[in-house]
Design a protein around this nucleic acid. Structure first.
Lengths: 110, 110
DNA sequence: CCTTATACCTTGACCACTTAGGTATCCGCT
DNA sequence: AGCGGATACCTAAGTGGTCAAGGTATAAGG
C-alpha cells in the first residue's frame, strides 16, 4: 500500500513535472508519481483525472489521443510553454514552502 | 507581505509544534509561525482560529484564559499528551511527504 | 473464468482554507 | 483630540481540491 493523502495543492506541480519529462498519458502519470516517490504518494484517480482536465483548461497542458505501450487507446498530455513557466514557479514555491515548514518543525532542537 | 497560501493540511502540525514549545495564545501562535518561517508563511486568522477550535475539540490542545504579555485577556493553549503524539506522527508524515515531493521535482536532473 | 492491470470517466460529500467582515482595547503619532 | 496600527478574539459565506465509490471497456495471466 503506502501512500498518504495528498497535501492539497501539490498535485498540479507533480503532474506538470511528470509531463515535462515527456509526452505521457494520464494513467502513466499516476504511475510516474507513485514510482518516483517510491510509493510514498499514491494519487487517487478521482483526484488525478479532474486535475488533468483542470490543467488542460488552463492551457498548461495539451491533449491528443494516441496508443499506449500496451496497444490501448490513451489520452496523451504534452506540456505547453505556459505550463513550463508555471512548473518553474510552482516548483520554486514548493521549495520555499517546504523549507519554511521544515525550519519551523525543527525549532527548539539542539 | 510575503507569505504564500497554505498547502492545506500543514497548518495543524505547525500549530501543534508552536504550542509544544510552551503555553501560547492564538495570536502569538500566528506570529510564531510567521517569525520562525521568516515571513514565508503568514497564516490568515480565518484559518488560524477555526484550526485552534478544531484541535481543541479533538483533545490535542487544552485552553484556558490568561493575561498576555501586553496585559490583555488572551486564550492560552497547552498541548495535551495526545497532541504530542499527534505532533510526532504528523511531523514524520510531513518529512516523508516533503522528501517524496522534492525527490519527484528533482527527477531528470543531473 | 476470474482476477488483476490497464485506461478512461463521473458524482457526491467533506472540509480546510480564503475573503471579508465584526468587536474591543491600547499605543503612538500628529 | 483623533486616527492608524498592533493586539486579541471571533464568525459567515463561498470556493475548490481531494476522497470514496462507483462506472465502462479491453487484455493478460493464473
Amino acid at each position: 500500500m503506502g501512500g498518504s493523502d495528498l497535501f492539497v495543492g501539490t498535485l498540479d506541480v507533480l503532474i506538470l513535472k511528470a509531463v515535462s519529462q515527456g509526452r505521457m498519458h494520464g494513467y502513466a502519470i499516476g504511475r510516474w508519481i507513485r514510482q518516483t516517490t517510491k510509493d510514498a504518494l499514491n494519487v487517487q484517480e478521482g483526484a488525478l483525472y479532474p486535475a488533468l482536465h483542470r490543467l488542460e483548461r488552463k492551457g498548461l497542458l495539451e491533449e491528443d489521443w494516441g496508443v499506449s505501450e500496451t496497444g490501448r487507446e490513451a489520452k496523451y498530455y504534452k506540456i505547453t510553454a505556459a505550463g513550463r513557466r508555471r512548473l518553474r514557479a510552482e516548483a520554486a514555491r514548493w521549495k520555499e514552502y517546504a523549507d519554511a515548514v521544515t525550519l519551523a518543525l525543527a525549532a527548539g532542537e539542539a
